[in-house]
Every structure is written in structure tokens, then in C-alpha cells.
Design a protein around this nucleic acid. Structure first.
Lengths: 81, 81
DNA sequence: TGAAATTATCAGCCAAAGCGTATAAAAAAG
DNA sequence: CTTTTTTATACGCTTTGGCTGATAATTTCA
């Protein structure tokens, strides 16, 4: 349900998927987020290390939230073996 | 389990809590994330709109991940009523 | 309360995010 | 194919994040 983001590339891919899922154009997202269409393009292509506020605004335009979660690495669990 | 972040203030508070929970000093986090102690301070106080890569680095130093989730607003569902 | 450790803030600097405005390129529609 | 729609790039400009290198200010603790 939640997608971990560890790079601008990953963010870009996620943004594009979310936008497509909502059948929106970059310009629609841009307008809703009060940014330029060019910026949405750059973000989706991972061409820029966006600022936090920008990411939050664009995500909001896509009805999504940024969140933080503890990192659960595949740890060794003796009970499983 | 996951904490929604909608502003730099919220991020700052979450970062500070996570750091305290791990009994780390700002300088420890800074070193692990390859940033300055002053930047960690600024982030925790919501004094700066950090860039995405910076946030990701600092979160990683705290064993946390950034993620995106669909916004689930308490929507009106006729079936419930 | 006084010393030590931790956190907050300052000044100057540079790189880059984001802007407005266009336009080129690519994709979709006809 | 040709037109229309959508997305990617470009240029000049302003703002600001993050840096180095300190130093205040605050908190902790003997």
C-alpha cells in the first residue's frame, strides 16, 4: 500500500504512476499544485532534487501523502528457521 | 506505524522524536548522514524547506524511510449509514 | 552554581530549485 | 500523413538550501 522512496528517480516513477492512475495531465497536476507544468515533467523524470514542500504540494494534487516509516530490513529471525 | 508529513514543522518534530528514541545527538545523525550538525538543527526546528535528498539521507541515518501513501480522508460512505 | 556538553544561530559563499515564458519534440487522435 | 494534444527543453532570473567556519545560547550534570 505504501511505496518507499529512496531517490528522485523512484519518486518520479511513483508520481507518474499516480498521475496516470488518475488520468490527469501534467498541466492539471501543476495547476492544482500551483507549480509549472515543466516542473512536474522534471520531477517525473527524476531530473531534479526537489524540495520537500514541492514534493508535498505535488503529492497533495494527486491525493497522496508523504509519510515516514521505520526501516524494516529483512532481518534474521531464528524462529523462522 | 507510519507518520504523515505535510509540512517542514511536522518533519522536524518527527525527526527529533526519532533521534531521541535512538539516543543520538544531532552531531551523530549529521555524521551518519554526511551533513552538518547545524543542518540537523535547522531541520528539526522546521527552519528550512530541505531538499528531498537531504531528508532521505537524514531519515536513513535514523533507520527510517520516506514513503508515499494514498490520502485516505474520512470520506462519506452511504453504505455505512 | 559553574563547567562541560549539546543545540541554535550567524555571515558569507556557491550551486541549484523553481519561476515565467516559450518552443521543440513526441504521442495521440483524426 | 496531418493536426492536435501532451510532454520535454531552453533561457534568463530570483530565491534559498547547504556549505565552511565559527560562536552564541541552552541544557546537562558534577
Amino acid at each position: 500500500m505504501e511505496k518507499v522512496i529512496r531517490s528522485n528517480k523512484e519518486l518520479g516513477a511513483a508520481l507518474r504512476m499516480a498521475r496516470k492512475a488518475k488520468s490527469m495531465r501534467q498541466v492539471d497536476v501543476a495547476k492544482k499544485a500551483s507549480v509549472r507544468q515543466a516542473l512536474v515533467s522534471d520531477l517525473e523524470n527524476g531530473a531534479t532534487m526537489a524540495r520537500l514542500d514541492t514534493v508535498i504540494k505535488v503529492l497533495a494534487a494527486l491525493d497522496m501523502d508523504l509519510s515516514i516509516i521505520p526501516r524494516r530490513i529483512a532481518e534474521f529471525d531464528p524462529k523462522v528457521y
